[in-house]
Amino acid sequence: MDLIALANCLVSPSCLVTQTTSGLIIGLLLFLVAAGLTLIFGVLNVVNFAHGSFYMMGAYFAYTVYVFTGSYALAIVGAALGVAVFSIVFERFFMSRVYGGNVLMQLLVCYAFILILDDVVKIVWGPEFKSMGMPDYFRRPPVFIAGGVIPVFYLFLMGMTALIGAGLWLIIGYTRFGKVVRAAAVNPQMVSALGINTGLVFASVFALGGLLAGLAGALAVPVRSLVSGMGFSILIESFIVTVIGGMGSIVGAFVGAILVGMVRSYGSIGFPLFVEGLMFLLMAIILVIKPSGLFGKEA
């Protein structure tokens, strides 16, 4: 424990700026993955344990598109669409067969996909680590704000995630699709009785979740190395985020993600050897106090 260092940081503007942005960057990428996870749970009552693999696929798709075209913009679009399409296939042909059944059956199907996708990645891209590298236009010196450092790429990243988050909020809150999705979350039979194709709704929700995970993978790939199995740690962290925020709540996912980002960022200064433990502790405490999470509806 190093509480003095933490206290020193909290009164230094440069440290505050740097650590807060650092927490935001970690949190915002996590939010993209967690938002998909929580959306799928909210509407379908399915915990998509394969969501980390979606993120991995996003990263590999982006890497491949970038290598072939040299355009990072295309890479982001390609990854998002690629994973969205895959999610539809995953939902229609596999997950839809185990809806309503045992949660363990869903777990089995997801686990099978984790295993399969990890191996497919190894076969297609090889077992070695890969790194895409920073696109040229982001290769410039970091920006200084109040003595704190912020890399240019991270400014872009924060802008992008803010845009995506806002877009998601608009879609869910103000479009017809959003209304149907929210209605399906409450009462799918009713939505079905109204003549809406629930299968289509479910597939689109999965596609949207996959799209978000793919975007997260694509946005992370300039600074994170790629390897088969990389989705796992992301899965665990986005789990913590969704459980803290409340399964099914997108606002909760946002708050949870930022919370986890800040715990990591400031925790690494105050409790350098117990950052991971802090997160599990946070999760356990919140579950005990409010089992459904900060923004979750009581079961």
Partner: peptide, 19 residues
């Protein structure tokens, strides 16, 4: 060497086929 692939497919058969 690709036991993840093989095991994954077997698990899928269990979960979706045999149930």
């Amino acid at each position: 060497e690709h036991h993840g692939l093989a095991l994954g497919i077997v698990i899928l058969v269990f979960a979706l086929g045999l149930k």
